[in-house]
Simulated scan of single mutants.
Amino acid sequence: MATATKDKFTGTTTEDLAAQVDALKADIAALTQSLGDYGRTQSAHLAESARASGEAEYEHLRSKVADLGNQAEDFVVQKPGVALGIAAGIGFLAGLVISRR
């Protein structure tokens, strides 16, 4: 074990330096813990914010799709001949694309 020697200029001993190093280690450990806690808190906050935003966007898109479905249904009811012609055209084009593979 090291013996305590005193610096003749500053009056500091090796034990004093060892105690200061130990205090510095404890401070760094506490700072690391605080930064970790802060990071976890911020990530949880951001995750919750992103989830809420995603849910709101999902609901908005779901209502848009429902509106488009209602518009398509109304179009088919109002103009069944045109709707049948469009469906036949899309089917014909899909058949051409699939048969060329």
Rank of each mutant, 00 (worst) to 15 (best):
A50K: 06
R51T: 07
R51D: 13
A52F: 07
A52S: 13
A52Q: 14
A52V: 11
S53D: 12
S53K: 15
S53G: 08
S53M: 11
G54W: 05
G54F: 04
E55K: 13
E55I: 08
E55S: 09
A56M: 04
E57S: 14
E57T: 15
E57P: 01
E57F: 11
E57Q: 11
Y58L: 12
Y58I: 08
Y58P: 02
Y58E: 10
E59Q: 11
H60Y: 08
L61F: 03
L61N: 10
L61K: 03
R62Y: 07
R62Q: 12
R62K: 13
R62L: 05
S63K: 07
S63A: 15
S63N: 05
S63R: 03
S63L: 04
K64T: 09
K64D: 14
A66H: 07
A66D: 05
A66S: 05
A66N: 07
A66T: 12
D67F: 08
D67E: 12
D67A: 13
D67H: 07
L68E: 03
G69S: 08
G69N: 06
N70F: 01
N70K: 09
N70W: 00
Q71I: 06
Q71F: 01
Q71H: 08
Q71D: 03
Q71E: 10
A72L: 12
A72E: 09
A72Q: 06
A72H: 04
A72V: 05
E73G: 06
E73V: 02
E73F: 00
E73M: 05
D74N: 13
D74T: 11
D74K: 12
D74F: 09
F75M: 09
F75A: 15
V76H: 00
V76N: 00
V76Q: 01
V76K: 02
V76T: 07
V76R: 00
V76I: 11
V77K: 13
V77G: 01
V77Q: 11
Q78A: 14
Q78G: 02
Q78T: 03
Q78E: 09
Q78P: 02
Q78Y: 00
K79Q: 15
K79P: 00
K79D: 11
G81E: 14
G81I: 10
V82C: 10
V82L: 13
V82H: 07
V82Q: 10
V82A: 12
A83F: 02
A83P: 01
A83M: 00
A83D: 02
A83L: 02
L84A: 12
L84K: 13
G85Y: 15
G85A: 15
G85R: 15
G85P: 06
G85Q: 15
I86L: 03
I86P: 01
I86Y: 00
